[in-house]
Structures are given as structure tokens and as C-alpha cells.
Design a protein around this nucleic acid. Structure first.
Lengths: 224, 224
DNA sequence: CAAAAATGATAGTAATACTATCATAAATGA
DNA sequence: TCATTTATGATAGTATTACTATCATTTTTG
């Protein structure tokens, strides 16, 4: 059996849909590779073109600039996490359990058998933890938001806040909690690894497991 | 009476201390001005030099590059908030009240009579909300951290987590809570303004007051 | 198999992020 | 006060970045 997973991302993010062609998928695959290695600042279309034996001109036919490429990747991540949560909570009754799955999805962001062969989800997750905030802290936020470039983020937060309300229908700020949970997961993973004084993890290995614990502890106190 | 406030920031952040000279203070003052207006990406030393009728070469004698200038500003902000919290909780007994002051300091980040004439704190706050994350999500984080470039952030978190423990000595993750509180304040302010679906503020005006409410609500549930 | 679409190859440009050098102005200390 | 150090300005130059344009060559598709 061969199942293919495909997300439909907002059309304003790209000039030509990279999922539709071999070159496009290579762009995605290797941009994840390179950005996760050298960081977004040092990443250039020239380096990417060299890596995949293409040319800058060809890349510019897919993405207007590297900022929108990053935003595309981050949107893809938002869809991915949304998919993980939806899939894994589907047959769960207990809302409390669902929330645990949400946290697990945010912290690990992975699945045993990936269904998208051209994206390395764990490297993409590293990019989101490291560079994610740069994708939406931009001076053009209002314009970009008005054309739907953050739709996937809003959809994800809507899903999570729905689960929050299942657990505690009286909780006053479900969206704020959901977005905070998303951001906290990324920030605490980052801090645990690079600025451990800003968090409370004891070891540098398996800090993801500890971050998961922290988030569960917080949510339990907040909602029950 | 003339009181001057001066923070001692980590020496690796600058080449020459900008607080020590007229030109240096102008650099700080107008970089805050320009970055808050056009954003960090569009900000260049050339533009700043033109604005203050100086030259690029002179600016490079103070800061190695614009990234370190931003990091300097953000460090200044961390010190500033730390100062606000310390000052305003000094004569307070009730730990619960102290935490409210922490939140107020993070959300408003201002004082009626500023003691530093060359820094506009509310514009600096806007920069931190908008660009702050870029200052520490960098590929050189390990090197920068090892020379003390994030000391002010750690100090601030130490102070806040101390207050958290005063309120609830058994709270298991005071540092994670403190850093989350700091990041949440900035993120929720940003979302309230630009991506309101990611939070729960009703109006676009006075969203800071609403964010303050949300944070207090969260903390009350978490700690009492 | 012809036409259309995608990609490659190459060139060029304005702006960015610096570095270097020398001249001049300001501050300092004996 | 004057000599000397220090700070700043003026100018020039360079490698890299972030694109845009044009034309040739493949590849895809009806």
C-alpha cells in the first residue's frame, strides 16, 4: 500500500507549488537540510542552488525570497503538527489524554513512519525551534496575515483550543493557552539545550522528555 | 536632584561602551528609533550613520555588527525590567502582589519618569516584542552564551523565579515558569496586536491591559 | 510530434556588510 | 598650555547578497 500525504498550503506563500515538481521537492528537502545545519541567516539561494545542482534563477521561480521559503516551511510544520494531533486523538475519548497527545506532538513532532519522503520532520522541527519566530516577527506581518500566510497556525491553535475546552469548558482563555503551549514547547526545548538556566531540566540528554513533563505539569495545574 | 541610571552590560557585547560617549549614546538612541520604525531586517549601519550624521566606520568602532547591537539593546531591556521589578517590589511584603508587579513590569515595561534620557523605553519594548527572539535564536548561541552575552536574561529569570518560589515554595519548575512568563508576555502582546486569533483579546485597543489580565489569570491558576 | 512549460546558463545591478587608510578634531595630563 | 593620545570623520574599496533579465535547451503534455 502506498499512501501519500500532501498539505495544501496557502497559495500566496509560493510562486509555483514546490510539491508539484521534482525540483520543487528538492528545494524543500535541501532547504530543510541546509537551514538546519547553518542557520537561516547564513542560508542563501545560491548555496541551495549549488547543493541541488540548479541555479538561483530557478529557485526564484518557486519562492519570491528566502523569507517566504522559511514561512512556507513553518506553515508546513503547523500543518504537520495539526495532522499529528488530529490523527492521534481521533479515537481517544478522554479529553485529558488528548491534551497529553497534543503536548507529545509539540515536543517530539515526529511519527514512526513518515509519509512524506522529501521532508525530514525532525530537522524541520529543529528549524521551527530555532528559526520559527523569525518567520512571523516581520515588519510585513499585517500584509502577510491579510493574504492568509498564517492560516495554518490559526487552524492549529483552533484545534488545540478546542481540546482545551473539552477538558475545561469554563477556561477563559483557550486560544492564549493554546498558542502559549505551542510557543512554550519550542522555547523550553531551545532553552533546555542552549540556555539551561532559563528552565529546569537537569540533564542535557533527553531534555525533550523533561520538557514534556514540565508542560504536562503546567497544564494539569491550569486545567484541573 | 539629578539621578542617573546606568546599567553595566556584559563587555563582550560591544567594542567600546556606547554609554561612555556622546556618539555612543546617539547610536543607542537612534538605533532604537530606527529599528522600531523599519524593523531589524531593514535596519543598516549606513542608515543609522546618515541619521546621526556620522559614518559607518565610526559605528563599527562601537559594535562588531548589527546583530550585537540588537543583542546589546535586548540586554539593556532585560536589565531595565529587572530594575523595574526590583524597585517596585522592594517594599512589598505580599509575594502575590510582587508577582502582579512582575507581570505589570513585563507587559508595560515603563515608568512614569524615565531616568535614562537617551533610551525611549516604550520603543525599546516594542523592539523586544517584535525582534527580541532574533537576538538569541542565532547559530552562535553557544559561543555567545559562553562569554556571558545572556547574563542579563538569566539574572532576570533568577529574580522572577525567586518571587515564584516565595508564592509557592513547592512549585517544581520556577525557572521554566519565569522564562515562559517573560516570553508569553511578549508573544501575547504581539499576537493581540497582529494575530488576534492566536489569543483571546476582544479589542485592539488596550490589549495590553487584557494581556495583563490573561497572565494574572494563568498565574493564579498555576500557583494557588 | 508540435507547442507549451520548465529549467539551465549566463550576465548584470544595487545594496549590504564590512575593512583599511589617512586626516582632523577633541580630550587629557604633565 | 602644549604635546600627545584618543575619538571621529572622510573616503575608498571589496566580497557577498539578493535579486532581475534574457536567451537557450530540456522536458512535459495534449
Amino acid at each position: 500500500m502506498s499512501v501519500k500525504l500532501r498539505f495544501y498550503l496557502n497559495e500566496t506563500l509560493y510562486i509555483k507549488d514546490p510539491q508539484d515538481s521534482k525540483l520543487g521537492r528538492k528545494i524543500i528537502q535541501y532547504s530543510v537540510e541546509i537551514i538546519s545545519q547553518i542557520g537561516f541567516e547564513a542560508f542563501t539561494f545560491k548555496k541551495l542552488a549549488a547543493e541541488i545542482h540548479s541555479t538561483e534563477a530557478s529557485l526564484y521561480r518557486y519562492f519570491e525570497n528566502k523569507h517566504l521559503l522559511l514561512l512556507y516551511l513553518v506553515n508546513w510544520y503547523w500543518e504537520w503538527v495539526n495532522y499529528l494531533i488530529t490523527l492521534n486523538t481521533m479515537n481517544i475519548r478522554d479529553a485529558k489524554k488528548k491534551l497529553e497527545i497534543v503536548i507529545r506532538s509539540l515536543v517530539f513532532a515526529s511519527e514512526d513512519n513518515s509519509l512524506v519522503e522529501f521532508i525530514n520532520e525532525s530537522k524541520l522541527h529543529r528549524i521551527v525551534v530555532f528559526e520559527g519566530a523569525k518567520a512571523y516577527h516581520t515588519i510585513d506581518i499585517e500584509k502577510e496575515n491579510s493574504v492568509g500566510m498564517f492560516k495554518s497556525y490559526k487552524d492549529l491553535i483552533a484545534v488545540i483550543s478546542g481540546i482545551v475546552l473539552e477538558v475545561d469548558p469554563d477556561f477563559k482563555y483557550p486560544h492564549a493557552l493554546a498558542s502559549s503551549l505551542f510557543e512554550m514547547a519550542n522555547n523550553q526545548l531551545f532553552f533546555a539545550r542552549y540556555l539551561p538556566k532559563l528552565t529546569d531540566v537537569s540533564s542535557k540528554k533527553n531534555y525533550d522528555v523533561e520538557v514534556e513533563k514540565i508542560l504536562n505539569y503546567f497544564l494539569n495545574k491550569l486545567l484541573f
